[in-house]
Design a protein around this nucleic acid. Structure first.
Length: 319
DNA sequence: AATAGCCCCAACCGCGCTTCT
DNA sequence: GAGAAGCGCGGTTGGGGCTAT
């Protein structure tokens, strides 16, 4: 079959999204759900193609996105998963709740590849670049990321409409991944998901509604979409309770468990919103954008977890 | 202070797959 | 069964910020 443009009728906007567009898309999805992406822009009053709307929602507007630096556990998990899955970013993302494939892909290309190379590891094969390097070390894992803590992005002192849970659990960077390779090896064993939920500090989303039959988007929306997007007319209600359902099946989840047991170092980082603000402010003043407060509310609604509880549940001794 | 080069990442593009008619 | 429509995924790009000179 022939390939068609997703935007046959041009005149559609491209490039960065303005807060007004974000608000329109956000409000539309909250109110009516997604339904058919190709009809979303028209119904939401946007001069965008459906594909662009979908991407914007998945990568930025979804209320369940985790916003912040990748923790060292996440780094290790990404590297481990990449060794197993290759560039299947959506599959990798499905094991990192709140992370998008785009985010992981960018992180890999801009940061992790460099780190691995600096450690003498070929990022594509996860093997040493040469025999001379790192004798006796396990490729790609053992020594690859413990120095990651030195490359954290600077925290910018700007208002964040998507509040981060700013917890430092004090994992020793030099030890964090010292046995990661062995742990990953051990991780490929059956495990009880309840154990993960109970021990990891994750929210238990087990009671989440299965929306697939309601809206046809119950399956991973992929591009990261480890959440079942419970969109539709009930969304306002659902968002206030439990809306997320982290997919977890197949053996790779064991690896996830390995990492999430050690979770979590939430670190301050400039949020996508900040970045967009930077972009936007170059041309327009969006300081009064109403979606700020809206998103904040939703973030809190979805992750209403007392910080103390989180801190207590983290098994910081795991590594 | 100016600017050139680098880096990061949001967003786009194109292809493949699945579902619908 | 064939074509159309829609979605998902991975690769790529371009713009803005940062840093070095």
């Amino acid at each position: 079959m022939g390939r068609r443009s997703c935007c046959p009728k041009q005149k559609l906007r491209k490039g960065l999204w303005s807060p007004e567009e974000d608000e329109k898309l956000y409000n539309h999805i909250i109110r009516y759900g997604i339904g058919c992406w190709s009809s979303v822009p028209k119904l939401a009053g946007l001069q965008r193609c459906g594909k662009s709307c979908r991407l914007r929602w998945i990568n930025y507007l979804r209320p369940d996105l985790k916003r912040g630096n990748f923790s060292q556990q996440e780094e290790g998990l990404i590297i481990g998963l990449h060794e197993i899955l290759g560039n299947r970013w959506s599959q990798i993302a499905s094991h990192l709740p709140g992370r998008t494939d785009n985010e992981i892909k960018n992180f890999w290309n801009s940061c992790l590849k460099k780190k691995l190379r600096q450690r003498g590891i070929d990022p594509s094969t996860h093997k040493p670049l040469s025999e001379k390097e790192a004798p006796g070390e396990k490729p790609g894992l053992n020594n690859s990321i413990s120095s990651g803590s030195t490359e954290h992005l600077p925290v910018k002192p700007v208002f964040d409409p998507f509040p981060l849970i700013d917890i430092q659990v004090g994992i020793d960077a030099t030890e964090t991944n010292s046995n990661l390779y062995d742990q990953i090896q051990q991780a490929f064993r059956p495990f009880n998901q309840n154990e993960l939920l109970n021990s990891s500090g994750f929210c238990d989303y087990s009671s989440v509604l299965d929306v697939s039959e309601n809206y046809g988007y119950g399956e991973s929306s992929s591009n990261s979409s480890n959440w079942n997007c419970n969109v539709g007319t009930d969304m306002n209600n659902v968002l206030g309770t439990e809306v997320l359902n982290w997919a977890s099946d197949n053996k790779v989840d064991s690896l996830t468990q390995l990492q999430t047991n050690g979770m979590e170092t939430f670190e301050g980082k400039i949020s996508p919103w900040h970045k967009n603000q930077h972009h936007a402010q170059s041309t327009e003043d969006y300081s009064g954008c109403p979606i700020r407060s809206l998103s904040r509310d939703l973030s809190e609604a979805c992750f209403d977890i007392p910080q103390g509880e989180l801190a207590n549940e983290f098994n910081v001794d795991f590594f």
